[in-house]
Design a protein around this nucleic acid. Structure first.
Length: 104
DNA sequence: ACCCTGACTTGGC
DNA sequence: GGCCAAGCCAGGG
């Protein structure tokens, strides 16, 4: 496991309920602005063992990237359960829910 | 080791 | 604002 992966895991795990982050944002904070795809891999392979809040990680368009309709519905359900509004199309208001670890 | 693929992002039309 | 093309990085076959 690379350092980047470890950092990404920490970052994802630190996203509080009711907040979301984009793949690119996580990647950037973990030290690799172009590592969004690796973040995706992390969610695929490590979300289970590390119990990561995968549902709080979405793409830059503010939408759920999941190809599976069922999984998307689950994610929508989980987020709404935390107070995040998700449209039927799986869209989220990033400006409103984006988690910003080092905001001043 | 090489090639393909992906829960991505950004820039241009 | 939506669709297409190229860039990027790692894991898996």
């Amino acid at each position: 496991m690379t350092e980047f992966t470890k950092r990404a895991v920490q970052i994802i795990a630190s996203i509080p309920p009711g907040r979301v982050m984009t793949y690119g944002q996580v990647a950037a904070l973990a030290g690799s602005p172009r590592g969004a795809r690796q973040v995706v891999r992390i969610l695929h392979s490590l979300s289970k063992p590390y119990k990561l809040p995968w549902h709080r990680v979405i793409n830059a368009k503010g939408k759920i990237g999941l190809p599976d309709r069922d999984a998307m519905t689950l994610q929508k359900m989980l987020l709404e359960g935390e107070g995040v509004a998700v449209s039927e199309a799986g869209e989220i208001d990033l400006e409103r829910y984006r988690h910003q670890p080092n905001r001043f």
